[in-house]
Design a protein around this nucleic acid. Structure first.
Lengths: 144, 144
DNA sequence: CCAAGAAATTAGAATATATCTAATATGAGA
DNA sequence: TCTCATATTAGATATATTCTAATTTCTTGG
């Protein structure tokens, strides 16, 4: 599919295109979901059992550093990771920890002064609630 | 100070006011910062060394469940916790993991339909960047 | 195409964070 | 004061992540 694109983005970030690293990247792009390191490790090894846990973590660290992948912390759960694609906000399920994307839209900046002398890099919205799998019987949509 | 207030909010949540639980709550309110479980455990025991790690975690879990305390996940770091006070957004330092409050302001809801059948409970803004301690020399404020 | 060397991989140990267990203690309502 | 549901404890266990140091492998330059 876009195997060439993956190779190019790795090369562009000066990361060698090893089978393990490629597999992590390909998995994340194919999935288009937010996966834990354990899920990625398992999935990559299911296809070709040649990657170690350390390598999975190393690659994720490098891919994050290179800006190809993004870390998403989830309260009370293992961290998740996603391939950076089009910009979006996040929805996190209170019950199962699943992270889902919410279509991007611009949010207003804080009142000037409120940021103080902090250096702002990015800003995103986090929605919390129940995903469709965890939501109780239909018709009970509640909005805070 | 507001020791009576703490007792009342515990009682209101049907949580017994034990010395350990009170100490956790008092510390969080006094600090008005986002602390890790380890920090809380250490601080509480510095004053009166009678609390165990398990108790600290149990109490934090119960206080979160009761809605008196809020969990804040930080990528690549131990979770942090804060006493729920006035509503606010969060700023997380890329470098040291410190969580800081940003004055609350309303953010627009996502386009209807974008949430799908998900149940929305709350929504907050997360700003990322460098805190004043970690920011490099002054004058270099950069905004994405 | 090959050699060289930087970069990446590995298994397993080590560390950090969080939860569980089951025996014991205690706050607070009656 | 008595009672007992609730809370606490030390330490073991579970889970998540990083480290170590020996080995292997991409890739570049010759």
């Amino acid at each position: 599919m876009d195997s060439e694109a993956i190779k190019q983005s790795l090369k562009g970030s000066r990361l060698r295109c090893t089978p393990q690293r490629y597999a992590v990247m390909a998995f994340l792009m194919r999935q288009n979901r937010h996966s834990t390191a354990a899920e990625i490790f398992a999935a990559v090894n299911r296809v070709d059992p040649r990657s170690s846990r350390a390598t999975t973590y190393n690659n994720l660290r490098d891919l994050v550093k290179a800006g190809l992948v993004r870390d998403v912390a989830v309260e009370g759960r293992a961290a998740r990771v996603e391939a950076k694609g089009v910009r979006h906000h996040h929805f996190i399920c209170d019950r199962c920890g699943m992270v889902e994307d919410i279509e991007w839209y611009n949010v207003p900046r804080p009142a000037s002064g409120s940021l103080g002398r902090r250096v702002l890099r990015e800003c995103e919205l986090i929605f919390r609630g129940l995903c469709t799998k965890c939501a109780p019987a239909r018709g009970s949509r509640r909005v805070s």
